[in-house]
Amino acid sequence: MARSLVEAKQRVQHCSICGNLTDADPCEICGDEDRDCSTICVLGDSSDVVAMEKTREYHGRYHVLGGVLSPMDGIGPEELRIGELLERLRDGKVREVIVATDPTVEGEATALYLARLLNPLGIKVTRIARGLPEGGDLDYADDATLVRALEGRRVMETDS
């Protein structure tokens, strides 16, 4: 057990491209030629990559910031891997950056900061939707979530 822990500590590192935790550099996702390199999904932590991968719906690349902006804790852009993200966008291959930080005030601040930074570069910046959890009861949802769900409503289209 102790040997395994030491080995894990020695082998696990941050991917030099996306910042995800990995035992090989670059990580499996960054090394996969089949993944869409025109889209980057920006996340706060490595654990968020696992959650996104479980959906099996996203086939682009990732970028892990290593946290989110937090004005009251003094965590600014310099403490996050934002410079590395800008470096990745430099070659012009990326057309869309999906900001999938947590739906908290810090996550929102990070998303808004990235939009301010990337929009002038001509890159499409999108934010993941917010609202009701799948399979949940409407009457159990809190007011803030319901308001978000109402804001994000979509037109229902039928075939006929």
Partner: peptide, 27 residues
């Protein structure tokens, strides 16, 4: 229950910063 939502302060980068500054000094 939420008596007064200040969602508008959380949806705008500039307002987030100013509100955070006030909240920090207040705290």
């Amino acid at each position: 229950e939420v008596l007064e939502s200040f969602r508008g302060l959380r949806d705008d980068f500039k307002r987030i910063i100013y509100a955070a500054c006030m909240a920090e000094v207040g705290e």
